[in-house]
Amino acid sequence: MTNLIIFLLLMTLGYLVGQVAEKKHYKSIIQREKRLSGLPTIASRFPPTDRLFDQSLVMGNTVISVDYFKRFIAALRNLLGGRVTSYESLLDRARRESLLRMKQQAEAMGAEYVFNVKYETASISKGRNNAIGSVEVLAYGTALIACGPSDEV
């Protein structure tokens, strides 16, 4: 019975706190994405050749954990199979946040574009089985900072 009460408490707490945290995070993500929309991030490896650019490595890194509620749902999914929707928003948030951090760094350098953008995703719960439900997402790319007119090429 005590087990059940502790479980229900953790579930309620996880759900409420997790939902509030997620809503708040998404709000901030959307806001910053709008603000940084003037700085394109491009997957292509080939930068424009019409002008000269300084190049610099930029990266953004995020580690996010799920709440108790979502982890329980994911564990049930392991039993029955299907889409682990409770982890989808976790990864979505981590990727977008990482990209934003990378863009912020590029913006601070006065970059015009970030090329060759890539993601790395790692689970940081290795060896701890189900004790930690966290992911790390690293976004990195090459920031192009204009340094001269095209006729100097």
Partner: peptide, 12 residues
């Protein structure tokens, strides 16, 4: 587009 729109409580 990267998140399935299903209410977590319904899923539970």
């Amino acid at each position: 587009i990267n998140v399935t729109d299903v209410h977590p409580l319904k899923e539970l």
